[in-house]
Amino acid sequence: MSIQEISLSGRKKLVSNKEMTFLEKMYLIAILKGLGITIKHFFRKKATINYPEQVREFSPVYRGRHMLKRDEQGRENCTACGLCALSCPAEAITMKAAERKADEKHLYREEKYASIYEINMLRCIFCGLCEEACPKDAIYLTISKELVPANYDREDFIFGKDKLVMPLEMAIKNTQLKNSN
């Protein structure tokens, strides 16, 4: 076997410069073939979906919108240490710490908590370094399984605690699941 005939991929095609026959020169047959191919796509299953109504399945490790977790008793994990902000390469996170009052023990797990916690979703690159840095298991990108939706104003992309903290119902459900197991 000569080196010209070897095809490791099995897809090798020799290029030829042969003259086209009369039928080939008319192009009509080639055009009809092309029309056949496109009409097949007309009836094929669509590759796109109706996005907000339909959502694609996310991979379990997909990094989407951040979520500030609650523990089994529904208290916020975050203690406003600022390590996430420090680790953030895009400078997207900012927060303000506050001291927990005596009557707030059911709301916050630690003695210090974040009274303001904001992530600028336009800056965030969803790298997940904040999640890795967090010592309190508080911030996660993989739980929400949500994308950050489009918006008209830049201000609307700064997500506060109202959008970031895990909803109470979700925390209750998680606890129930854990107890039943």
Partner: peptide, 13 residues
């Protein structure tokens, strides 16, 4: 619509 269907999309809806 036809363009979308021929390209496996849904088109304006």
């Amino acid at each position: 619509k036809v363009a979308a269907y021929l390209q496996d999309r849904v088109g304006p809806n």
